[in-house]
């Protein structure tokens, strides 16, 4: 579904991604780990279409389409979803109104009829159950004054509503208490199917206890320097990154 080859991206003069290669197939879960500042969020942003980053080399294809050629909203409509590390506050727009606009814009893109109020009500109710989120939170200004955990939960609620083919979760576990972590992870697992794929960016093994990855990659200075199976995450938890970094000849 997703094929990243030799991806280079920079912001201003600073090169942040320096040749990323990654293949993600339907049904797979990939974990991306790596030290602070290694480029994990940048990779996620570039995939979602953030214009601040300039792609200087490489290709990204998504179901055969050139993803880099699409506007962020078209990528969403094609099935890419990014759960933000730092969800943005949107004053004056409630989550429900926001999601109504998003769903109907995506349906328009796909040539489908818009949903009406009744259909939305039913759908929201169903999706709220996935992450155990409260109606009162959804009526408030999106992310404004939300606690860290509420923001992350809301991201997964949005993911449930949009049912993406590729979900990229950027540190969705940070800021969650132990119960919330379990709830959010269970929500993500319920949304998993043989047709979609997930990339989880995380620093901690504990999330991977719930969302079990098929592959674990280590990103360092803008490159994937090591890939393995879920055992690699356990090893990282125990030993840190030094043993990988010191083995590198830069």
């Amino acid at each position: 579904m997703l094929s990243i080859a030799n991806l280079h991206a920079r912001i201003g003069e600073k090169e942040i991604l320096r040749g990323i290669n990654l293949e993600v197939k339907a049904g797979e879960v990939h974990a991306i780990m790596g030290p602070n500042g290694s480029g994990k969020s940048t990779l996620a942003s570039v995939l979602a279409g953030r214009e601040d980053y300039e792609v200087t080399d490489g290709t990204v294809s998504f179901f055969g389409k050139d993803l880099l050629d699409l506007a962020p909203e078209a990528r969403a409509a094609e099935g890419v979803f990014l759960a933000f590390q730092y969800p943005v506050e949107i004053p004056g727009v409630s989550t429900t109104n926001f999601m109504k606009s998003a769903v109907n814009e995506i349906r328009k893109y796909r040539g489908e009829e818009p949903l009406d109020a009744v259909q939305f009500l039913k759908m929201f109710k169903e999706k709220m159950a996935y992450v155990n989120i409260d109606q009162s939170l959804l009526s408030r200004s999106l992310n404004e004054g939300f606690s860290g955990g509420e923001k992350k939960r809301n991201e997964i609620f949005q993911m449930a509503v949009l049912a993406p083919k590729l979900a990229i979760l950027d540190e969705t576990d940070s800021g969650l208490d132990i119960d919330a972590l379990r709830i959010v992870a269970e929500g993500v697992n319920k949304l998993k199917s043989p047709d979609n794929a997930t990339i989880v960016v995380t620093h901690y093994q504990r999330l991977l206890d719930y969302i079990v990855p098929d592959f674990v990659h280590v990103l360092y200075k803008g490159r994937i320097v090591k890939s393995g199976t879920k055992e690699l995450a356990l090893e990282l938890e125990e030993k840190g990154y030094d043993w990988i970094i010191s083995a590198l000849v830069d």
Partner: peptide, 20 residues
């Protein structure tokens, strides 16, 4: 960008923000 990443077109996102 946040709004567009959810599938809302740039114009619709601007309209929503201004109306809000």
């Amino acid at each position: 960008f946040y709004m567009r990443s959810r599938g809302i077109s740039e114009e619709a996102a601007k309209t929503l923000l201004m109306l809000a």
